[in-house]
Write a protein that binds this DNA or RNA. Structure first.
Lengths: 130, 130
DNA sequence: CTTGACCTTCACATCAATGTGAGTGTTTAA
DNA sequence: TTAAACACTCACATTGATGTGAAGGTCAAG
């Protein structure tokens, strides 16, 4: 698969795919003519990257994360440094905080919408029965 | 309260507080000498802004959100346009997506850490009993 | 009255994530 | 065989969230 197709299937621009590669998030093999060649599995990886970026993680963290999130997970974990574990634990905590904050705010919006919409429908009913 | 104190109490730099004001996220009154003056309630607002920004929302969305998230909520909702409602519903959906993505990834990290740590402890035990 | 700790504005710097376009080569299909 | 569509690299532009520093005003304490 070439870059255009991958872009099409992931909704990530060619430019960004090259950027991700530059940032070490994905790799590609090259055809004889120099064109990037991707495998089917790249689709999922790119979607995952997209999700993480969209969730607000910077590329340098994603870069550390990716090898760990890769399924199928090798049970035999070779080169995991203690610093890496600390980093992951730290990032896990940050994710939890983020999730909490987002959830709080989403719920607040939900409450607000509930209120607004119920008032609106009450008005509609009042108009209908007047 | 002046800007330095607010910065200190929220963990948000003076520079950013001014930036938030410039972006219309907060307001301040001015003392005779031109210094910004904040009320106690600004602490919570700033923390909320910080949370939303940290969650990846851009200031222009936060600006729309803030009046709605404001507690105590006026039950009497005056100037809420249909577009506003649509924006909020849209943003609510985006928040949910984000939350989902973050949760998925956090759990993946958790799984990974579990695996790694259990292998590590198994090794430790093995060493201890050999 | 001076020094230090505040505050002001203004402006330039940076970093990450993107867009855009130029200049050039390659593949595909009419 | 030529045009359209795609690829390549390189490079400059932009936007958003920040940092940093300059040049200057205010104020409290020694």
């Amino acid at each position: 698969m070439r870059i255009g197709r991958l872009a099409e299937r992931t909704g990530v621009s060619r430019r960004l795919l090259r950027y991700y590669e530059e940032q070490g998030l994905i790799t590609s093999s090259r055809a004889l003519n120099g064109y990037r060649e991707y495998k089917e599995s790249h689709v999922d990886v790119v979607l995952q990257i997209k999700g993480l970026l969209d969730a607000g993680l910077p590329t340098r963290i994603i870069q550390q994360l990716l090898p760990c999130l890769d399924k199928p997970q090798t049970i035999y974990v070779p080169n995991v440094t203690p610093e890496m574990i600390v980093t992951l634990q730290h990032e896990q905590a940050r994710l939890s905080e983020r999730i909490e904050s987002l959830t709080r705010n989403r719920d607040a919006i939900a409450d607000y919408l509930d209120t607004v919409l119920s008032v609106k429908s009450a008005n509609t009913e009042r108009r209908a029965t007047s």
